[in-house]
Amino acid sequence: METDKLFDEYYEKSLLQGGTTCCPGCGGPLFWRMTLDALGPNTIVYGDGPCAMCAIRNIKLPTFGLHFSFVADGSTGIVAALAAKGRRDITVVSSAGDGATGDISFGKVSAAAERNENMIQICVDNEAYMNTGIQKSGLTPFGAWTTTTPLGKENPKKAVPMIIAQHKVPYVATVSVAYPRDLKAKIKKAKGIEGFKYIHTVMPCPTGWRFDPAKSVEVVRLGVETWAWPLYEIEGGVLKLSMKPKPKPIEEYLRPQRRFRHLTKEQIEFIQREVDARRQRLLENDGKRIIL
């Protein structure tokens, strides 16, 4: 078939093999395609365990992984080996989900940041343990249903990018697959910086967030437009908002996701106030040094 040939040629050139095992509408392969586009072939990818692994399996570059709870550690060894061999031309990317990054291996990420290991650490944040079947993580947002928070999560989401920024690492950024140009620019920038670079990406999960897979990109775009997912970068300790959209009501982001459908009017108002307050603080600090 003519079309098949066309696509086979494309897959041949692409750094991500076609036909992943991810759920329909998963942002994982989309994110990796964009990221690998930006990084180029001279890259080693380290990571294992989370949903993102489904996409990582299809990466055609050298990959290495140990297990779920191993974040930023094997990559530390790879970075050291490259240093021992004098290979400064290779980019090391280390990837993990939100649960691994924010919960079980939080100390490892923090330590790698403190040692300023020369790697790009990526947190693929789908806001729960999705691979095991939607269990609450430290990065699950307030109010969200998961199988371990059937009444909604009681506590707010852990602000990992801001915590990592306080390690005085050279570069921290949040990205979203709904904004490919912004995403690629940030990945390219991270590649050019020496030291520990932290990229936090929102990962739309139709299965765990309970929405129509067709709305995958739309939902994360709404996340940015409602300021639930502000996009920013922290370079040399200075905060810079990547975009400052006119805020849409948070309900527009929450409504398509059935993990929030049980929320009361009061709870939604509470979330709105929290988002507004954070937006205010982000705007106040835009362009300023936020590291003490």
Partner: peptide, 9 residues
Amino acid sequence: TFCPEGTVM
């Protein structure tokens, strides 16, 4: 751009 699987051209 947004096809998760890269199956649209």
